[in-house]
Amino acid sequence: MISLQQVFARNNNYQLEEIDDELLLYNPAHTRTIYLNPSAAAIWKLCDGHTTAQAIITALQDVYPDAGNIAADIADALNQLHEFGAITVSDGE
């Protein structure tokens, strides 16, 4: 489970293709391609090793003010990215 104070960093072993505002991540070691829609791509970009889950949620709520409560969606996305090995997680400072 993701905690709000954890921070996430992108796994540099993934190749990146940005097409319009969507992302494709590819890890040759796993032969798996991951597709991120614009919302998920924004989450991925915010995984910079410093930004906490809470800050990612806040940032996306600012971008999509009418989206309602999106915290659970974002936690799911972070969990999935973590399961795929596309991001690493740490407990923050």
């Binding site: 798996r32 391609t33 919302s39 989450i43 996306l60 971008v63 999509y64």
Partner: peptide
Amino acid sequence: QAQYRPPPITTATP
């Protein structure tokens, strides 16, 4: 308009 969509993460393999 830019619209929020839940971030589904889908995958494919060759």
